[in-house]
């Protein structure tokens, strides 16, 4: 029994934090949202060089094997720095393609995922109706035939893949998080696999996606809290810092409590990888991040309500993450063992 990160894991978080701090991620996020992906792809490569995507890729395919705790450590940092792109979806795809029996697909796609060369997005049951950043992803995976809850119980399904640039300009829908570019899934493509293994692979993909989303949300919340604490210390009204007012201090204390109790759920879920633990981590981390976003906006006042001010990058992210890869209600259903709203549990 030792429920703490070890020195190596802490050092990993620090080096990722160092890289992302130096990378000026707010500027990267803004250009990504505007459809200019150059800086974002460069950052993606550097994140991959540090080994982040390899944490979800088996050793046989140039990864380091499934390392969910380290992955959670990494995704907290990605969230803290608001890194754009289908990071969760790429991890979900890695889990899906790691399914036993998909070795031909794993061999074809996973080395590129681990190295950062291949950005993957997905349209899977358990995800949403749109593919995230479908205009920039190198590979788009899509499952059909499973229905909304399909695939979760090992049902039959087909896995389709499409790669290369989309024809024409894609129809990108605006997200509440301007950095998230939502595209309609492509139709057709190459039939990569069919049968019950697809369903089993998707169940794994959803587990990893929930872990990565929960960790990312925790990071988003921590960043919002840090920025807001810094702001209320320097913002003065009535001749004193607004952070000396109890109404302000207590809201921030509540945000701190929510985040610090989400943290052990995220890492506990990484240790067990049990569907109920993952669902609990997902809903609590996302709700803590969202509550912190509300507090951050309120305590910044009008400046926080502007697109120009960087706080907006995290505010939108907190809202978007709350419902992707399992809405709060769906996750609570899984915790109680009855599955989500669609009556299908994960795994």
């Amino acid at each position: 029994m030792r429920f703490l990160l070890d020195d190596e894991q802490t050092a990993f978080a620090r080096s990722l934090d160092g890289l992302l701090t130096a990378a000026d991620t707010p500027a990267v996020v803004r250009s990504w949202g505007a459809g200019d992906h150059g800086a974002g792809r460069a950052l993606w490569s550097r994140i991959a060089e540090l080994g982040v995507f390899a944490l979800a890729v088996p050793e046989a395919y140039e990864g380091v094997g499934a390392r969910p705790v380290e992955l959670a450590v990494a995704f907290v940092e990605l969230g803290r720095h608001a890194v754009p792109g289908p990071v969760v979806e790429t991890v979900a795809a890695a889990a899906l393609l790691s399914e036993p029996g998909f070795s031909h697909l794993a061999k074809r796609f996973l080395p590129g995922v681990a190295s950062g060369e291949t950005v993957v997005t997905v349209a899977l049951p358990g995800g949403g109706p749109y593919v995230l950043d479908g205009d920039v992803a190198d590979v788009e995976l899509r499952m059909t035939g499973g229905g909304r809850g399909g695939g979760f119980g090992g049902e039959e399904g087909q896995l389709w893949g499409a790669s290369g640039a989309r024809e024409g300009s894609p129809d990108v829908r605006r997200s509440l998080d301007p950095a998230r570019r939502l595209c309609v899934p492509r139709s057709g493509g190459e039939l990569l696999a069919a049968g019950p293994r697809v369903g089993a692979g998707v169940a794994d993909a959803v587990r990893w996606a929930r872990l990565a989303t929960a960790a990312q949300a925790l990071g988003v919340g921590l960043a919002l809290l840090d920025r807001t604490v810094a702001y209320v210390k320097q913002r003065r009204q009535f001749g004193v810092p607004v952070g000396s007012f109890q109404a302000v201090r207590h809201r921030l204390a509540d945000a701190k409590i929510a985040l610090e109790f989400a943290r052990p759920l995220v890492f506990g879920a990484a240790v067990s990888m049990e569907p109920a633990d993952l669902a609990a981590a997902k809903v609590v981390a996302c709700e803590a991040a969202y509550a912190t976003a509300r507090t951050a906006l309120q305590l910044h006042g009008a400046i926080g309500y502007t697109a120009e001010y960087d706080l907006s990058l995290w505010l939108g992210r907190a809202r978007a993450l709350r419902c992707v890869w399992g809405s709060p209600g769906e996750c609570r259903g899984v915790v109680l063992g009855g599955g989500g709203d669609d009556g299908a549990g994960v795994g």
Binding site: V229, K233, V240, G243, R249, H250, L252, A253, K256
Partner: peptide, 20 residues
């Protein structure tokens, strides 16, 4: 819990001491 929140604000978040 109000006293506890003050402790959190001052000692964990580093906010300035305030009027209670």
């Amino acid at each position: 819990n109000e006293i506890q929140r003050d402790i959190i604000a001052e000692r964990l978040l580093g906010l300035p001491k305030g009027r209670r």
